[in-house]
Structures are given as C-alpha cells and as structure tokens.
Amino acid sequence: MTLHCPAPIPARAGIGLRSYHFREIMESPPPVAWMETHPENYFGEGGTALRTLERIRVDYPLSFHGVGLSLGSTDSIDSTHLRKLKEVFDRFQPTFVSEHLSWSSVDGRFLNDLLPLPYTEESLNLVCAKIDETQTELQRSMLIENVTQYLTWPDSTIPEAEFMAEVVRRTGCGILLDLNNVYVNAVNFHLDPVRFLNAIPSEAVQEIHLAGFDRVGRWLVDTHGQAVYPEVWSLYEWALHHFGPRPTLIEWDTNLPPLAELVEQASQADAMLGACYATPA
C-alpha cells in the first residue's frame, strides 16, 4: 500500500490512537472523522504497531503528534530523529504534523518529557530557527502546541500567547491549541484563559485538543486521564465562537476508558461543532 497524499481532515472530532484500543478499533471501526498518534511509536522497521497503523490509515486520515523533537532545546535537532520522522511521514501521509513548544534534552541527555521553556528573545530566536530547519527538512509546515507548565521562569519577558504569535509570524507554522493546557495553566498560576486566547492569532489555529486533568495536591496536573471537564467544554464553546470551527481531538492518554467513551466525548465535540454551522452569521 503506497500513499501519495494526505487525506483532508474536516472540522470535526477525532480521537487519540492508543495501542490499548487497537483490537477494538480493528473489530469495530469507530465513527470518528480522524485519529492522532505519536510518530515515535512507529520508528521501527516492522511489527505489530506499523501493521496496525497501515490498516487504520486505509480508513482514517491521520495526524502525527510528536513528543521527542525537543524544539526548545539548545541542542541542535537530532538528525536521526528527523530522518525517522520524514520516513514515517512519507509512509503514512499524515494531514497534520505537530510538536510541542517545550524542550526535553540538553547536551545530548534526554528527559523524555515536555519541559517548560522560558519565554525570552533568546528562546524565541532558537525556537524559530529550529522550526524553520524542521519545516525545511520535512518539506511541510507543522503545528506547535502550547504545553502545561508547573513552573514559571522568573526570567521570562514575553507572555506565552504573544510568544506563540511571534513564532507563527516568523516561521509560518500553525498552532495546535490545547484548551485543557490553557485551563490547567490558568488555574495553577492564576491567569485568565480568555486573555491568553485573545492573543492567539486565529488563522494560525488549525487543530484543537481537548482532554481531562487530575488534581494532585495543590496542582492541577495535565494527565489527560479523565473525561473533559465542564470548565474546559465552556472554554471550547468560547473558542469555537472566537476562532470558528476547527478539527478537534479528544486526547485521553492515561486511565484509558473503553473506546465507546472516547467516541462519546468526540460526539459531544461534534455536536458543538455542528452548532457553529447552525448559528446564523
């Protein structure tokens, strides 16, 4: 099976593809418009994961959400990682490819997590240079996702949303807007989520993530291990009104429910997306 181009993803709901659900998905393909998964899980040369993704790709457009490129790191881009991304993108022709506005390595040592970036002129220049390099090498544009931070760098001089807007302006990349992360950051650091969203350039937003969180002591932690909370659904409604309809992913990473529950969350999002079109301009 050779794919030559990506399939279009409409402004409807999709679900995160986890190996936990492989069997269910193969046996009864869920009624969702698209799926998203981590490309790093498909860096092998053969085996079950690749075979399963090939089967799924026949029926569903795909989005690849990377976790290992470490765009905010002062290390240079790992050429092996980039090469493997290119191979898996060529093979599966995803519609969206995305990464995070964070870092996960320094001096060749990896921490394999999404670490907080100080927002300064220096980090802005660095991130833009690395996104330029990545988009050039991959010969396509990418989306950058806002992450949760459990630490505010006292040295930050630029607010997060303005930082992202400037990255978009300089590199032409798009934004993957994670509304759960916006909410969690807002609660943890007493910020106004609407102020954040108002500073995000609307045309750049090409995908929205919705997820749940957990409370751990004094923190809300972005575990993506629950259904989407009512507060985040409200924020989503506001975002749809403000930005317009966008492809929306239900992202559920831990504490995985049966597939039907993911699909149910997706249909909730679909209902709200449908309402956008029903409302007269």
Binding site: E40, T48, A49
Partner: peptide
C-alpha cells in the same frame, strides 16, 4: 494477531504527558 505485543507499541506514550503509560 493485531494486538500481539501492543504494550510495546506505545512506549512513547510515556513521554507525551506525565503519567501517560501503564495506567
């Protein structure tokens, strides 16, 4: 068998979000 060895098919789930693996 589509699900043989699926635990190994999601290693990078551990990296994406804090706690995103092994439930």
């Amino acid at each position: 068998q589509p699900c043989a060895g699926v635990a190994k098919a999601g290693m990078n789930d551990c990296a994406s979000k804090l706690h995103a693996c092994a439930g």
